[in-house]
């Protein structure tokens, strides 16, 4: 909750102020789209560890945070990245090595959990996962849940429908609210106060943003308040949820940002190659993340030619005809 008129800061400051070792965090976007990648890379540069990460299907950002050793615990629905990684490679490796603790949910359950957090209710019901191992097998131990005051005692609770068989429903699964310490999202437009506009699909960004104690917004364009207030029905999140506004062009790169740029298939394919091998993945981190001091320097490594190749076609919102093999 923050009503200041000017929340503009730089990414280094925003991350060091709101994200600390052991923080419970969530990031916006979905697989190859609108992940707050500049912020993810800054977390990696600052070597923040033992994060408790909440994800539905955040794809690239989640895999890089895990690969860089920033994540201790993960609550997740899907660790894949479209055709670029049917299973995210560093996520898979970490799970098989036991390097991170994982609790599995479904995408809708994670969305409902953020929504519950945003609404200020302790849980929301759904019929999803009745009769499955999502309800039967728990990744976090009872002790771990009891020891961490930020975690509910139960992964989920199955309950008889308290309204009898109302709506033809005999049982429901109650999934607990999530209130992350900080959520980070990347959006197309934002003003200095935090009024913002996402274009295209919003995924679960709105629920994630409102459920968090602190919200960092990175944006393609820092625009005048008057521009966003001319069509307020197109804005999504009350500005007082926002704590930091950071202007980062290409802030979702190498994932896509609708109407601005596409995902970079070359980067994502190369990343998958690096990720397959521990030594090569270290090389990747050293060259692209630790070897650059900010997102602009990473983009300089990629070069203008590549960035131009993924520029969005104003007609479609993506790079029409882009070679994506």
């Amino acid at each position: 909750m923050n009503t200041s008129q000017d929340k503009v800061t730089d990414l280094k400051r925003a991350i060091s102020k709101y994200v600390a070792q052991g923080s419970h965090i969530s990031i916006g976007g979905f697989t190859v789209n609108r992940n707050p990648m500049a912020a993810v890379y800054e977390i990696i540069r600052q070597a923040i560890t033992d994060l408790h990460l909440y994800a539905h299907s955040n794809g690239q950002g989640v895999d890089e945070l895990i690969g860089a050793g920033c994540v201790g615990k993960l609550e997740i629905a899907y660790g894949g990245n479209g055709r670029f990684a049917p299973t995210c490679i560093r996520f898979q490796q970490a799970a098989q090595d036991g390097a991170i603790l994982i609790e599995d949910y479904s995408n809708y359950q994670m969305t409902l959990r953020f929504l519950a957090g945003a609404m200020g209710v302790p849980f929301l019901p759904t019929r999803s996962s009745l009769g499955t191992d999502i309800t039967d097998r728990w990744g976090f131990s009872e002790e771990l849940r009891k020891d961490d005051p930020k975690l509910p005692d139960d992964k989920l609770v199955i309950m008889e429908n308290p309204f009898g068989n109302w709506l033809d429903t005999s049982k429901v699964v109650l999934v607990p609210a999530i209130n992350p310490d900080v959520t980070i999202i990347h959006v197309q437009k934002c003003d200095r106060q935090g009024t913002l506009r996402m274009e295209g699909l919003t995924f679960s960004d709105i629920e994630q943003a409102k459920s968090a104690k602190y919200l960092i917004v990175t944006c393609e364009e820092l625009v005048d308040t008057s521009e966003l207030r001319e069509y307020p029905d197109q804005n999504q999140i009350p500005f007082f949820h926002v704590d930091a506004v950071v202007h980062v062009p290409f802030g979702a790169y190498p994932t896509a940002c609708y109407r601005y740029y596409d995902y970079d298939p070359i980067y994502l394919n190369e990343y998958a190659e690096y990720a397959k091998d521990d030594t090569r993945f270290k090389d990747y981190l050293n060259r692209f993340i630790y070897g650059t001091s900010n997102h602009r320097e990473l983009l300089d490594l990629i070069g203008q030619k590549r960035l131009k190749s993924i520029a969005a076609d104003p007609r479609t919102g993506y790079a029409s005809g882009l070679d994506r093999r």
Binding site: A77, T87, Q96, Q109, S129
Partner: peptide, 13 residues
């Protein structure tokens, strides 16, 4: 796990 796959995503839903 011996092999970890991506998980449910929206499939279980």
């Amino acid at each position: 796990p011996t092999v970890r796959f991506p998980g449910s995503g929206g499939a279980c839903d």
